[in-house]
Design a protein around this nucleic acid. Structure first.
Lengths: 223, 223
DNA sequence: TCTATAATAATAGTATTACTATCATAAAAT
DNA sequence: ATTTTATGATAGTAATACTATTATTATAGA
């Protein structure tokens, strides 16, 4: 059986829906490759246009600027992650197993999807780790937030918080703990790769180290 | 009694020591004001030069680029924070009190120092919260790290990890927990201010909320 | 099949950013 | 008194982050 999962990303993030055309899809796919390769600071629409084989003007018809494009990519990621959490928790009754599954999902690459959108999942994962904080740590966050562009992140956070509360209804900070899990999953992987003295990593398996650290933390906190 | 605490910031961060001249000190002070006001992305050396009443060329004689200047500010912050931790833990024997003091320091504005450097502590604190991750979430992190520019961060992390281990010698991840405390102190404050649905804040006191959340988390983790 | 309507390519242009270079002058050190 | 050093003034360049115009192509509807 073949099936496709699609999410409608918030209209306000793009000027023209990139999923509606070949060029549009190519733009997002190449953006993921380029942001991974160059880092967000060195990534430009000019370079992207060259990579796609189109012009800057065309890219600008889809996205207002590179910040919005990154936001688009992350919205896609957060939505997909929320779907994966929901999907993988289907029919699981044990809340302990649920939380372990969530940590596994947060700390490992996305599974390859069969769909039309074959984004490079390794690159996407690295972008989420290294670049995602740049979409909210900006002076304009209040303005941007009004467009509800962080809704998928909040939904994901909320879903995980729900499981936390189910596991321990007396715990007072399910949302903060949930966002802490998500963020910590990112920078502990980053730190263990590039600034290992900020962590206790011993082997080379950054994802596994992060998962084990988070699991330990989570279940100590929740009892 | 008047006294001054100074830290020698790593030579490799600057081209000319900004503390060695009036203009240099003015540059750093104004940089803190401007980065706070504009956000790091909109902050430029041109704007800084105008603010200081000097030229771009002069600013470039002190710092290679704005990334290095931010790094300088954070090195100063991390060093000062490590000093404060050391200072405030003097003569405290109870490890529980030590950890509470550390969380208090991590989540609140720096105390005003009597010294020559009267950086705006409120602005500095906001910069640490919103901009600090931008110094390491860059493609060049490996190269930059070779200059030991993250040493003060690692030292601070290590100092806190030491207290964690003293409190609970059996805990396996003192460094990771330490960096998690530091980072979480930042973005829980940020989230509770701008994206409150990612947290469990109820009042308006972001610093207090973050402190209480972190304390709860820390002592549950360490038992 | 013709025609209206999008979307794109090609091209140009602007303001700002992120620098580098030169040279004269002022201040500090020897 | 003279050398060194820092700064100011000025200029200039390549890249970035856009906006605008027009011709061409693809598509969808009549």
């Amino acid at each position: 059986m073949e099936f496709q999962v699609t999410f409608q990303v918030n209209q306000k993030i793009f000027l023209r829906n990139p999923e509606s055309s070949e060029v549009g899809r190519h733009i997002v796919k190449s953006a993921i490759d380029l942001i991974f390769e160059l880092g967000f600071e060195h990534f430009t629409f000019k370079k992207l246009a060259v990579e796609v084989g189109t012009t800057e003007a065309t890219v600008y018809r889809y996205f207002e600027n590179k910040h919005r494009l990154l936001l688009y990519i992350l919205n896609w990621y957060w939505s997909y992650m929320e779907f994966l959490v929901m999907f993988r928790l289907q029919n699981v009754t044990d809340n302990h197993v649920k939380l372990k599954t969530i940590i596994e999902l947060l700390t490992h690459d996305l599974p390859e999807s069969a769909g039309r959108l074959d984004y490079n999942k390794k690159y996407l994962n690295q972008i989420v780790i290294s670049e995602s904080s740049k979409v909210y740590f900006v002076k304009e966050v209040k303005e941007i937030n009004k467009d509800e562009v962080f809704k998928p992140y909040k939904d994901l956070c909320s879903k995980i918080a729900g499981v936390i509360s189910a596991y321990n209804p007396d715990y007072s900070y399910p949302r903060s703990l949930s966002s802490t899990l998500i963020e910590t999953a990112h920078y502990q992987q980053f730190f263990s790769s590039y600034l290992p003295k900020l962590t206790d990593i011993t082997s080379e398996n950054h994802k596994e180290f992060t998962a084990v650290f988070l699991e330990n933390l989570l279940f100590r906190v929740l009892g």
